[in-house]
Amino acid sequence: MEYVSPEGLRLDGRRPLEMRQLRAELGAVSRADGSAVFEMGNTKVIAAVYGPREVQQRSQQLNDKALIRCEYTMANFSTGDRMRKPKGDRRSTEISLVIRQTMEACILTHLMPRSQIDIFVQVLQADGGTRSACINAATLALADAGIPMRDLVTSCSAGYLNSTALLDLNYVEDSAGGPDVTVGILPKLDKVTLLQMDAKLPMDIFENVMQLATEGCKAVANYIREVLIENTKQLENRRGV
């Protein structure tokens, strides 16, 4: 199948190095300490953060740092074929683990010993790049909850189809069976914390695709920063400062 037309356009009309439209909204769940909705094109994810709060299971309490927990779920109506998915299948357990470890790397856990932070992310609409969208949503929700972090982790995916590197794959491109590289970076430190890749790719091309995904992450980081600054300004206005 042709994923990039001779004119250099992708199936959804984007250029190979173009991202989908981003949209973010803070405070989507009123009861949560921090929450956010994050959209990358048609992919829509909601994240809620509770904590730092008392550890629910005392045996899990850590005396030198906060315990981070993360739960990733996909809504039944999020994919094309609507079906009930068993809770805690292998894929979502793995993604929960990946998101938790990515967030652990950026949260200053040593400042909150003997406490627990819960991150819940749910995919409302899946159109490729759910993993990245979840991480971006979780970062925003953590920032909204005012949890101290080293940096904002941001994530973006990139692929390689029809001998072209493509940024931010959608569902059709993702399920084409080509390589899919998901990168999560700490933009200020310029360090890679999350890197997942499947299907095979020669090493030099992989380097380019990873570079492209990193650029995507930086673009997301800029957007997230703007959203947070805008949100803070609004809060300031409301308080009449």
Partner: peptide, 28 residues
């Protein structure tokens, strides 16, 4: 990786961040 020098899968599930150059060095 395989012997053809192709990367088949990579998993770095969060944790400490590393520079991109270090990742490429690891791959080699």
């Amino acid at each position: 990786l395989n012997t053809n020098g192709e990367v088949c899968a990579i998993q770095k599930a969060g944790g400490e961040g590393v520079l991109q150059s270090v990742i490429m060095q690891c791959l080699r």
